[in-house]
Design a protein around this nucleic acid. Sequence first.
DNA 1: CGCTGCGTTGAGCTTCTTCAACGATCGTGG
DNA 2: CCACGATCGTTGAAGAAGCTCAACGCAGCG
Lengths: 232, 232
Amino acid sequence: MRKMNTELAAKLAQFPLFTGQSPEMLDKIAAVAQLRRYQRGQSVFCEGDAGNGFYMVSKGRVKIFKLSSEGKEQILHVFGPGEPFGEVAVFEGRSFPASAEAMEAMEAVFIGRADFIELIQKNPGLTLKMLSMLSLRLRIFAHLIEDLSLKDVPSRLARYLLFAVEKQKNSQKIELDITRGQLASLLGTIPETLSRIFSRFQANGVLITNGNEVTIQDIPMLEAIAEGSAKL
Amino acid sequence: MRKMNTELAAKLAQFPLFTGQSPEMLDKIAAVAQLRRYQRGQSVFCEGDAGNGFYMVSKGRVKIFKLSSEGKEQILHVFGPGEPFGEVAVFEGRSFPASAEAMEAMEAVFIGRADFIELIQKNPGLTLKMLSMLSLRLRIFAHLIEDLSLKDVPSRLARYLLFAVEKQKNSQKIELDITRGQLASLLGTIPETLSRIFSRFQANGVLITNGNEVTIQDIPMLEAIAEGSAKL
DNA sequence: CGCTGCGTTGAGCTTCTTCAACGATCGTGG
DNA sequence: CCACGATCGTTGAAGAAGCTCAACGCAGCG
């Protein structure tokens, strides 16, 4: 039992949310945290479920998504190691507003609602981090809403690719870390449409695709498409 | 000066965020808060502006929105008395993710970033309220994303109307408190499309429109349309 | 070897937007 | 008091964007 807690505490220390916490505090947190494991495709929670706590990814990735009545999926987030999810239900005290599913073998730390609220109240630094994380998510959501409502699919793809280029230190060769289908769902479209647009970009010399590898050839053009000042 | 502060303190006490605060605390808050007035159509802040603080509506209404490069508008929120806005920029420390404009003569209390962060850190109750508010907004955004990505316009309108019915205590006569154009922008479409759908609903006996007054006649049908199990 | 999941391509169609015109309402100034 | 312009809402016709459905290729894996 002792050993398990120190292991957990070590994991907790990795999370941005908990950096700067004293070892004693980490031990306290570890005492109320549980480690949970999921297989690829396994559901973590479903929209509407009662939210009794929140999660932080320690290994693998989760997708947070909504389903339409016809089964179409809209991905809201893809979270990897260090990122928390399911907090909305904790603070707002109701059900989960979306579903979560492991995209690959995944491991997450779970902390119950009451325990976490207690932690927060005693820890102003933690509070501010949490507020800042929720704010960041609001910003991301606002961006997604803008995309869905005001931009066409080529623009969205262009924005996504430019973001990926930036994230990978401007190397023009990008490794897509999700499948085409998932990317389509993240961009609010379907695989067929996404595929057509990739082809169109390639036909116009904007990029070259090769499996999960995409080489960007014309960044200025991509920027023009992203902001809507050029069409293909 | 003294008088102004007590006036302000009285206003502050009305805000859900500050209910339960001691008179002394309210005075302290009032000392760092400013009252700002806006005319209909006046901009409060623009997307990208540096966010040095946040606002709480005390009179009138604001819309929070994004603009496309062609000038199309997507409304993210409409806020009335008691509701805070612009907090994202405070906690995340960057710029405003969207623009804000007064929809009518409006009055808002402004609190600077540093002051508010100080307040928060000394006041766990305030913290939790703030977390809960941000969470609620994330939930609302998730709903909007679902609408935009997974539902057609008739569904969105149906959902909106059902929500309004519920809000107005189930009287089937609804008073729309925003213009058609604004409603279109809130639902992620344009006035022409919205108008057509209202006509279609009316032609099928689902509702009767009369200016800003809408009388719902077939709630079950509206529910069916909202969830996508019926089309017109 | 066949199966299954994933990606691609084509054809047709639905939905929504665009563009244009028109009617109604309201506030203003003559 | 009326005329005027501005704003808003409505309606029609045409067009574009993206979705559905179906077929096929390809790779990985039992």
